[in-house]
Nucleic acid binder design. Structure first.
Lengths: 120, 120
DNA sequence: GTCTATGTTCGACTCTATTCGAACTAGTTC
DNA sequence: GAACTAGTTCGAATAGAGTCGAACATAGAC
């Protein structure tokens, strides 16, 4: 008997979109928690500064960590609703959900854009 | 031989101020981390909404947790630079560092003020 | 088919956070 | 002095977050 359930971790076959919270489901505490890690803060800042609003594959961000670590952080960001991920062939293309975050938490992304890392 | 060092956790004898990071030392990731806990977010929001800018003792916030837990959360908030604590007699009087936070992270406290808890 | 590239999943480990009770300290009041 | 109060400190238990290697999956090029 085949399992007719849909894998809740899988990408939408039509759009390639991975599951994410809707705009109304965004939780401030979860977003803050996702952004409180320096590595993730750096990912989001790099996107905001250099990605020109385009989708960027994980590899575009030069993250000097093992692949499993990177996957973990992308997942945290996606589940908090900070980034949207779309599967295209082998790549997972990412973009920060600027419109959703600006609508729900105005000014927050500006703080991330202006952030200066501690050891800089 | 007496220890002439000053206890770095003690209140300033003159002002009663407990040690805290200066405005320039505030770190976005640390502030976000401090605010990512629902209990602490509630503390800060309660102050912003109801404290009228005045100092408030810990007991003024009706926090339904053991005393040791409350002490812990106040310490996290103070060390992140979110609140200032002043020892006055038996009480520890608290205030959110609105001017410092607005200067370094404009808009952040507005998000806290407008936050709606999950189970509300 | 093989090879390569991009990323996931799993399990384990470590480190940090959170929670709390019990004992304690220090003002205040009597 | 004793009693009360506001809060700390310590130690321990538990839960959670970050890190990583090894094995795996899948798409594309050849």
């Amino acid at each position: 008997m085949p399992d007719l359930q849909v894998d809740p971790t899988a990408a939408d076959p039509a759009t390639g979109l991975l599951p994410e919270p809707g705009r109304a489901e965004l939780r401030l505490e979860q977003v803050l928690s996702a952004l409180s890690d320096p590595l993730r803060l750096d990912i989001v800042q790099t996107y905001l500064r250099d990605a020109d609003g385009e989708e960027r594959a994980c590899g575009w961000f030069k993250i000097d960590r093992p692949k499993s670590t990177r996957t973990h952080h992308w997942k945290v960001l996606r589940e908090a609703g900070v980034v949207r991920q779309r599967q295209v062939g082998l790549e997972r293309r990412n973009r920060v959900r600027e419109a959703d975050l600006d609508a729900r938490f105005p000014g927050l992304l500006d703080l991330v854009r202006d952030w200066k890392p501690a050891d800089a």
